[in-house]
Computed example of a mutant assay.
Amino acid sequence: MTIDQMPIARNPSVMFSEVEQGTVLMNIESGTYFDLDPIGSAVWALLESPATLPELCAALVARYEVDSETCHADVSEFVKELIAVDVLRQG
């Protein structure tokens, strides 16, 4: 299966807090933290429930001035980075 087909979900071991400029995440398993900008925070918020990449992009395209191709490329890269550091999980 490709990244487009499998649901993406938050790692339940990641704690988070919304701050003025976005969202701060902390993976309690690894002790690492991440600072998300407003767009990254929007992706995180949308993943309150598992979603596929096309579902994420549809919601973001409806909310922001971005075309679907750019959104897909950017969100795909972002999601892959967060999966690699175990902030998000797929499947």
Results as ranks from 00 to 15, higher is better:
60 L>F: 05
51 A>W: 03
66 V>C: 07
72 H>E: 09
72 H>P: 02
75 V>I: 13
81 E>L: 09
71 C>W: 01
55 E>T: 11
72 H>F: 07
59 A>Y: 03
56 L>K: 05
51 A>K: 15
58 A>M: 10
68 S>G: 06
57 C>W: 01
49 S>R: 13
62 A>E: 15
74 D>C: 11
52 T>V: 08
69 E>F: 06
80 K>R: 14
78 F>S: 02
62 A>F: 08
62 A>W: 05
72 H>D: 08
75 V>D: 01
68 S>Q: 14
76 S>G: 15
62 A>D: 15
52 T>Q: 07
54 P>A: 03
75 V>S: 02
52 T>P: 02
79 V>T: 01
81 E>P: 00
80 K>F: 00
58 A>N: 13
74 D>H: 09
69 E>V: 13
61 V>R: 07
70 T>I: 07
67 D>R: 06
68 S>A: 15
68 S>P: 02
79 V>Y: 00
65 E>C: 09
80 K>V: 00
61 V>S: 04
80 K>Q: 06
76 S>F: 01
64 Y>V: 05
75 V>W: 01
65 E>R: 15
67 D>T: 07
63 R>Q: 15
55 E>V: 06
52 T>K: 08
77 E>V: 10
75 V>H: 04
53 L>G: 01
79 V>E: 01
71 C>Y: 03
69 E>D: 14
64 Y>E: 10
71 C>I: 07
73 A>C: 10
71 C>S: 12
79 V>Q: 01
56 L>V: 03
57 C>Y: 01
55 E>G: 04
71 C>L: 10
49 S>M: 10
61 V>Y: 00
55 E>K: 09
52 T>R: 10
71 C>P: 02
66 V>W: 07
75 V>K: 02
60 L>H: 09
60 L>M: 11
49 S>F: 11
65 E>V: 11
51 A>G: 01
63 R>E: 15
79 V>H: 00
53 L>R: 04
62 A>P: 04
76 S>K: 13
78 F>K: 00
77 E>Q: 10
54 P>H: 04
77 E>I: 13
57 C>Q: 12
73 A>P: 02
68 S>R: 14
69 E>S: 10
66 V>G: 03
74 D>M: 11
57 C>I: 02
79 V>P: 00
75 V>A: 02
52 T>L: 05
55 E>Y: 03
63 R>S: 14
78 F>M: 05
70 T>F: 04
